[in-house]
Amino acid sequence: MEIKPHVLVNAVPPYGHVIANEKWRDSALVQSLKGTGNVKTIFEEELGMVDFHLSNKSCILYVSETDIVAGNNYKRKLVRFRNANSSLQGIVVAEKTRLSEQYFPAMQKFVVIELGLTLLPVASQLEASQLLTQMVHMEGKDNPFRKKSVSRLLDPVVMSLVQQIPGVGKVKAVALLQHYSSVIQLCNAETCELETIVGQATAQSIHNFFQKPFF
């Protein structure tokens, strides 16, 4: 059978669903998705080399134990996938079994390090279905690992930056920041001005810290 280089890019499965390649229709994986996973499957003939579409622009490329042992075909498929699309996150789910595990390090190097795709090993189709189930059900949830971009106050940062200057502790830092509110102002201040705030020795130390070249 000819592997189509294109994939269905605009296929977005509704929440709680996956779009599966027609070839998976009678598989243990899909049975288990429906049974224990409570994930609904929509079958599609035109998925090309992709096995499952998840929402959020990611898709599963399944590599079976036999594929791994046989070698080069799955590599060609993954390379074609990587070259064909940039908009989909490719997640390779591979069967790491007693038979295929000896090939796993080489496969991981190829998939993750060389191609830059994600690789998730599973022991069987059943484990794959459990993993897919979690991927589908997490769509609606908050991801704790996703850094929320909270704008933080920079005031404490400036305060602690000033305290890194040799000879400047908390009290002097406060005094300095009452006159020069930013690090750049402090950096470009004249030594004689600094002297009136923190005394001669510290003023010299601040000047040296900022202005003295390293070499």
């Binding site: 404490p156 602690s160 930013s182 690090v183």
Partner: peptide, 23 residues
Amino acid sequence: YRSLRYACDITLMNTSTARKNSL
């Protein structure tokens, strides 16, 4: 760049438990 130019309001600073923060 922003943090180096940020005008710090010292009146807001009663405790200086400044933690290293990141983007």
